[in-house]
Simulated scan of single mutants.
Amino acid sequence: MSEIEHSVAKSSTVAPAGDGAGRPGRLKKTIVMVGMMGAGKTAVGRALAARLGVPFLDSDHEIEEAANMTIPEIFARDGEAFFRKKEAQVIARLLVDARGVLSTGGGAFLSAENRKTISDKGVSVWLNADLPVLWGRVRHRDTRPLLKTPDPKATLRDLYEQRVPFYAEADLAVVSDAQVSVEGMVDRVLAALATRPDVLEPEE
Rank of each mutant, 00 (worst) to 15 (best):
M1I: 10
I4K: 03
E5F: 15
H6V: 03
S7P: 06
S7H: 11
K10N: 06
S12A: 11
A15P: 07
P16E: 12
A17H: 08
A21G: 04
R23F: 05
P24W: 08
R26C: 15
T30L: 07
T30K: 10
I31N: 11
M33F: 11
M33Y: 01
G35T: 12
G35A: 09
M36H: 14
M36A: 13
M36F: 10
A39I: 10
G40Q: 00
V44R: 01
G45Y: 09
G45Q: 05
G45T: 05
R46N: 03
R46L: 11
R46K: 13
P55N: 13
F56M: 07
L57Y: 11
E62I: 10
E64P: 02
E65T: 14
E65G: 04
A67F: 10
N68H: 12
I71D: 00
E73Y: 07
E73Q: 10
I74D: 00
F75T: 01
A76F: 09
D78N: 13
D78Q: 11
D78V: 06
R84S: 02
K85F: 12
K85V: 06
K86D: 01
K86I: 15
A88M: 05
A92D: 14
R93G: 02
L95T: 14
D97C: 08
D97R: 14
A98L: 12
R99D: 09
G100A: 02
V101P: 04
T104W: 14
G107H: 05
G107I: 08
F109W: 13
F109K: 04
F109L: 07
F109V: 01
S111I: 09
E113N: 07
K116P: 09
I118M: 08
K121W: 15
G122F: 03
V123H: 13
S124W: 02
V125A: 01
N128W: 11
N128K: 15
A129M: 09
V133H: 04
V133N: 01
V133Y: 03
H140N: 10
H140R: 08
D142R: 02
D142Q: 10
P145H: 12
T149Y: 01
T149Q: 01
D151Q: 09
D151S: 00
K153A: 06
K153H: 06
A154T: 05
A154Y: 01
T155C: 02
T155P: 05
L156D: 00
L156K: 02
D158W: 14
L159R: 02
L159D: 00
Y160H: 00
Y160N: 05
Y167G: 00
A168M: 01
A170Y: 12
L172P: 08
A173E: 01
A173W: 11
V174F: 00
V174H: 05
V174G: 00
V175L: 08
V175R: 15
S176E: 03
A178Q: 08
A178T: 00
V180R: 06
S181K: 01
E183V: 14
R188D: 03
V189G: 05
A192C: 08
L193F: 00
A194D: 00
P197H: 12
D198F: 15
E201M: 11
E201Y: 05
P202M: 15
E203K: 12
E203W: 09
